[in-house]
Design a protein around this nucleic acid. Structure first.
Lengths: 132, 132
DNA sequence: CTTGAACCTCAAGTGGCTTGAGGGCGTAGC
DNA sequence: GCTACGCCCTCAAGCCACTTGAGGTTCAAG
């Protein structure tokens, strides 16, 4: 399997595969005439990487997950990764919701208070009101 | 006012101020003996930039907002920026909530179905289940 | 006059790729 | 054999918004 075939099969771009290899996430495959030739293992690994990235794990976390898969560590390890990740997703959601509330309040404040005045006086742009 | 004083007053780091100048967000100030000397206008501008960044506007959006302030465009322009921004914040929240649901489902699936088996067989790591 | 803090410029690193330049390999048709 | 084409190769730079570091200059205090 050449790189283009693998890329299509796993749903990942060709440069991305080379990038993963360059950072040591995918093990370098055999070569024929200078060109990379992959087997089924590479497809499995790349599919797993893609899955992790779709779940928004970082590259480093993905690397750790791959290692735990290759060592056949118990499932509880995997769950721990996922739970930690879930925590950071929830934290980010909370931050964004606070930001949403702030911006929404500024917009409605503008509508009721200052709409029609000039930009420099708009409540949305007053420093210190509702900093993130 | 030298750069260090401005930095403390506006709550921004010194290199960040120089960076803002390098990308044309802050107008270059006068110099005395090669060193930057700022007036009150710079403080106002920098405070506004900081405010925009805290509200998570991009640099380009911040640039547009600054321009609308300097031209004293009507407040409705500002509100439009804020509303657009609010839309993208809400979109990101929706994406993260979907991701949260996916990961949470995988974790509880692991607990009820596969907990105790080896990582490669864990439901969390099965490609195609619950892609973002 | 010396010390030390604050200032200066320029370059590189962060994350996770994408894009581009400039060239090599493999196969099909002539 | 020869060309045309698509796929492959490497290496470098670009994206965002800074931060960090190296190596050197200026200023204010003692």
């Amino acid at each position: 399997m050449r790189i283009g075939v693998l890329a299509k099969a796993a749903g990942v771009s060709v440069p991305t595969i080379r990038y993963y290899e360059s950072i040591g996430l995918l093990t370098p495959p055999a070569r024929q005439g200078g060109q990379r030739v992959y087997g089924g293992e590479a497809f499995k690994a790349l599919s797993l990487i893609r899955h992790c990235r779709e779940l928004d794990f970082s590259i480093d976390e993905t690397r750790d997950i791959l290692a735990s898969v290759q060592r056949r560590l118990p499932c509880s390890d995997t769950k721990t990764f996922a739970e930690k990740h879930l925590g950071s997703i929830r934290k980010k959601i909370a931050e964004l919701r606070a930001l949403e509330a702030t911006v929404a309040a500024l917009v409605s404040g503008c509508e009721t208070t200052c709409c029609g005045s000039a930009a420099p006086d708009c409540v949305i742009l007053q420093p210190g009101c509702g900093a993130a």
